[in-house]
Nucleic acid binder design. Structure first.
Lengths: 129, 129
DNA sequence: GTATGTCACTTGCATTCCGCAAGTCACTGT
DNA sequence: ACAGTGACTTGCGGAATGCAAGTGACATAC
């Protein structure tokens, strides 16, 4: 049983599970990064940046840092020279899948959003070269 | 079959259902208001403001306005003199329940958040006096 | 009939966050 | 030598947030 995720010094607004989740994920970008890591096989900074919504690079760097602090994402160097990094969801991050699916459903039905195809096992793993 | 919800003039960032949902609900407060309307029987401005997370009044007014524009919330006057209003979720708003439940689950498991009791049919309806 | 209280908000203002463009650094490939 | 790539960082103007205080229409208590 995992202890509660929480970066050093963080105080939650309240005991409510929803409020706490919003403390972590409550903004316009974070869940899109999780989506790309989970379903779209985007695991490098560059790949995440090239996603459809064109996230600004400073925001992307900041959100990846925060996701790593929260333990939802792991940053790993997969190459030395030049140093290159890849980002992967931890178990805690992957556990967001049911929530993400329900959010996607609602957006599909109410906002005419596109449905995600291949929801499982997508992505090329690490970039080949 | 409902047409796509969208206030006049709004452009979505992308076709993705998740991105579109975040265009509507992607901030720290909006889902807490939905939570209170859905489960906690808070239907007046005052009741919503008294919720545990102490939302600032200007933000609350703004979010209620936006939720109404998006068609997730209906504002109704239930008393003339003095004028008093109550807020209720529309069907589109209520359709967020499965997503909210999954978000709550994740917060409960990963962030040690409190679980919501009475998830269905909570609340006193309109304030008596 | 004056004082206090309630409800539903607005307004002002300082602080913080966001988004865009540009720059940096370490390489690699030609 | 020189353009290119990947992973960021920095600067800066504008938008959003958070706090306190104010407003207007009543209702209730004294």
């Amino acid at each position: 049983m995992a202890r509660t995720l929480r970066p050093a010094g963080h105080e939650f607004r309240s005991k409510c599970s929803i409020a706490r989740t919003l403390d972590v994920l409550g903004d316009k970008w974070t869940l899109l990064i999780v989506r790309d890591l989970m379903w779209h096989g985007r695991h490098t900074f560059q790949a995440l940046q090239d996603s459809a919504e064109r996230i600004p690079t400073n925001i992307l760097a900041d959100r990846l840092r925060r996701l790593a602090e929260w333990g939802l994402v792991r940053r790993a160097q997969y190459q030395d020279r030049p140093p290159r990094f890849e980002y992967h969801l931890t178990e805690a991050g992957q556990a967001l899948e049911p929530a993400l699916i329900q959010i996607m459903r609602w957006g599909h039905e109410m906002l005419n959003g596109g449905l995600n195809q291949r929801v499982v096992g997508a992505g090329p793993g690490r970039p080949r070269r």
